[in-house]
């Protein structure tokens, strides 16, 4: 049997080592961070069924509309504290979303105002629509739920 030739590492081998090292460190770094640098995601459900899921930033480009049970909700990006273009409510700069317009009878979804944090939601019972924020930076100081 012919013996294997004696292999000598070359500069290319070193490059492969560096690439593997960079890749491994990158994966480890991403997993350690647990994806906490992701932005907020809006999840829209109608009658308990998820119908839309998108990064909050996408609302800046264009508002979205949801129609169910004969009612239409228009959802847009907003800053916390902002109520409408006619109101001069101070904003603290936290970005979120709100229901800008709805033809539902209760208008509770519009009156909920702007939600900005993971776990918060806007509910329209007449249209049976729930819009909820998920993800975002993990903050142990955030509340998990609100009673009331």
């Amino acid at each position: 049997m012919k013996p294997f030739p004696r292999l000598r590492p070359t500069a290319w081998d070193g490059l492969v080592v560096l690439c593997v090292a960079a890749l491994a460190l990158g994966i480890a770094f991403f997993q350690w961070r647990g994806g906490t640098q992701e932005g907020l995601t809006a999840v829209v459900s109608v009658d308990g069924r998820e119908v839309d899921r998108f990064p909050l930033e996408e609302l800046i480009a264009a508002p979205r509309a949801y129609e169910h049970n004969g009612y239409t909700l228009e959802v847009c990006a907003a800053l916390r504290g902002e109520v409408s273009s006619l109101d001069h409510v101070k904003s603290d700069g936290e970005m979120g979303l709100r229901v800008a317009r709805s033809d539902c009878p209760t208008q509770d979804c519009v009156h909920t105002g702007t939600i900005t944090r993971s776990g918060q939601s806007i509910v329209c019972l007449p249209a049976r629509v729930i819009i909820r924020l998920e993800g975002g930076a993990a903050d142990p100081g955030n509340v998990d739920a609100v009673t009331g």
């Binding site: 909920t112 918060q120 009673t147």
Partner: peptide, 15 residues
């Protein structure tokens, strides 16, 4: 678990 108690004076602000 951290459960917030809504401020009755500002029911339209979930924060």
């Amino acid at each position: 678990w951290r459960v917030g108690v809504q401020d009755p004076a500002h029911p339209d602000d979930r924060n």
